[in-house]
């Protein structure tokens, strides 16, 4: 069974169609990269999986998006629970104006967990998972804004991990980071694969090649090609894909 499946998905912002008939199936414990030129609908598509687009007025969705075989836009779906299961990391690090500890504990608290010991343990494991523990263990009570950009982004990943989702969505998670922080995050993605299903939007083709198992190429709201990363980059079936990865447009 697939972890995530989208069947004939169309998406509209008001009158303009941003996604056209997208069909993708993603297996558990894989990393899937979404690539394509700016404005082609990658973020829109990614945000379908945790229903983040719901916040925008005047949108329309048709088709099906299934996670673990369940239509997440179906009746009786609780969006909060869905989002608890599908974590998200954003383009710019966006910690809350709270302490480092409270940032990671946030997801636990809003989901009704009160056990102090449990929270402490979970915060520690999550921060260790993103290899940030040694850097912040002495300043957990300090504001998260005091960390560097790269540290903040790893903290945001830890924040997403703390509530133990099974899927993690990442929208250009390294585009605001320096090369060293980027490398650290990439390494992290590779390790997280063992436990999570990851979907990542990236503009960096080397990054897609390095971290992902499969890659989907979007162009003007259409899914042009979806294949194993190696194949897509070495032997694309579509000419448009070829042009894009060789840098002829976009």
């Amino acid at each position: 069974m697939y972890k995530i499946e989208s069947k004939n998905v169309d998406f509209y912002y008001g009158p303009s169609q941003a996604l056209k008939n997208i069909n993708i199936a993603i297996r558990s414990n894989t990393v899937t990269a979404l690539i394509g030129p700016s404005g082609c609908g990658k973020s829109t598509y990614l945000r379908l999986f945790n229903r983040m687009n719901d916040l925008i007025d005047d949108i329309k969705i048709s088709g099906q998006v299934m996670i673990d075989g369940e239509d997440i836009y179906g009746k009786g779906i609780n969006v909060d629970s869905l989002r608890k299961n599908v974590g998200m990391v954003f383009q710019k690090p966006n910690p809350f104006p709270k302490t480092i500890f409270e940032n990671v504990a946030y997801g636990l608290r809003v989901n009704g967990i009160k056990d102090k010991k449990f929270i402490e343990e979970r915060v520690e494991t999550s921060i260790k998972q993103v290899v940030l523990w040694d850097e912040v263990k002495d300043k957990l009570k300090k504001s998260a804004f005091e960390l560097s950009g790269g540290q903040q982004q790893r903290l945001c990943i830890a924040r997403a991990l703390a509530i133990q989702p099974s899927v993690i969505l990442m929208d250009e998670p390294t585009s605001a980071l320096d090369p060293i922080s980027t490398a650290k995050v990439e390494e992290l993605i590779y390790e997280l694969k063992a436990k999570y299903t990851i979907v990542i939007v990236t503009h960096n083709m080397q990054q897609a090649g390095r971290v992902s198992d499969r890659t989907a190429f979007f162009y003007l709201g259409e899914l042009v090609e979806y294949d194993e990363t190696k194949k897509l980059f070495t032997n694309p079936k579509q000419e448009r894909t070829q042009n894009y990865i060789t840098g002829r447009f976009g």
Binding site: M52, D80, G87, F90, N94, Y106, A160
Partner: peptide, 23 residues
């Protein structure tokens, strides 16, 4: 981004209001 981060962690809109937006 701040609101979305909160909602993405499974917080309800109300929790987002009093835990993130108001502070």
């Amino acid at each position: 981004a701040m609101k979305e981060a909160s909602l993405a962690l499974g917080a309800s809109r109300w929790q987002t209001i009093y835990k993130v937006i108001i502070p």
